[in-house]
């Protein structure tokens, strides 16, 4: 199949970028989207041009490295799918495909389609952990009985791969889905409950500090999340935040 790609090219963080059109020919439907970009990059390198920079790592849909805003949607048109797991059969021969980086003040473009997502790392550093004693007499986590329902909910929240599609999809560039998934996966379990109040306050404070927008419950994040993280996590985070600020210690 043949496609016209309209790709965001930006030399570096300080340069002004622009959309550049590329024609790609003889693309196999079995290729993944990133393999299609690999083909284009090989051609660009052979012609002496700068290849298109984009993030990728595992190419198995589990690491959260790949991004790309494809035809107006993060990770492209397929639901519950990362860009690396998106295949060219999802596109029509002759189609024009727009490829842009995540757009958010908190995710500045480094180059072309790569953005700096270290804001997420700083939010995790602010409280997305449990302070477990590892001095040698650590209790086996399985020794603590946990209701199946809580374990399942915590696990569902923990499937967040931190790719940032929620921020990219949200019209407010809000990171609430990501932060709430991280808050939820810990606060639902006994090991995480101990530090729940400090955690939610610190993580929300860091999130605001990074310049992400606020949640207006449009549901775009949930619809575009490759792991299907639900909006209920955002409500849980709001609940925990209210609890931690209005009646701390209860």
């Amino acid at each position: 199949m043949n496609l016209t790609l309209k790709v965001w090219r930006q030399k570096d963080a300080n340069s002004k970028g622009e959309i550049v059109a590329y024609d790609v020919k003889d693309i196999s439907e079995e290729m993944s989207f990133l393999e299609m970009l690999d083909v284009l990059n090989e051609k660009l390198v052979a012609e002496g041009d700068e290849p298109i920079a984009f993030d990728h790592d595992c190419r198995e849909g589990i690491c959260g490295a790949c991004s790309l805003y494809i035809n107006g949607e993060p990770h492209g048109p397929m639901n519950r799918t990362t860009t690396c797991q998106l295949h060219m059969r999802s596109f029509k021969d002759g189609e024009t495909v727009f490829i842009e980086p995540w757009r958010a003040k908190a995710f500045p473009v480094i180059k072309d389609l790569m953005v700096d997502r270290s804001a997420f790392d700083r939010i995790i550093q602010a409280g997305g952990y449990v302070s477990v004693n590892t001095s040698g007499n650590t209790i086996d986590a399985n020794a603590i009985p946990i209701p199946k329902e809580d374990a399942d909910e915590a696990f569902d929240a923990a499937t967040c791969i931190g790719c940032g599609a929620c921020v990219a999809a949200c019209k407010n560039a809000s990171a609430m889905l990501f932060v709430s998934a991280k808050v939820s996966q810990l606060s639902l379990l006994p090991q995480g409950k101990v530090e729940a109040e400090e955690r939610v306050k610190n993580m929300v404070e860091q999130m605001d500090h990074e310049g992400f927008g606020a949640c207006t419950v449009t549901g775009a994040c949930e619809a575009e999340c490759p792991k299907g993280i639900s909006l209920e996590n955002i409500s849980r985070m709001n609940r925990e935040y209210l609890k931690a600020t209005v009646s701390p210690g209860k």
């Binding site: 805003y69 107006g72 727009f98 019209k171 927008g213």
Partner: peptide, 12 residues
């Protein structure tokens, strides 16, 4: 404030 969180719009 929400508009400020995305200073550069998407082209598409």
């Amino acid at each position: 404030s929400n508009k400020a969180a995305r200073p550069q719009k998407y082209a598409y």
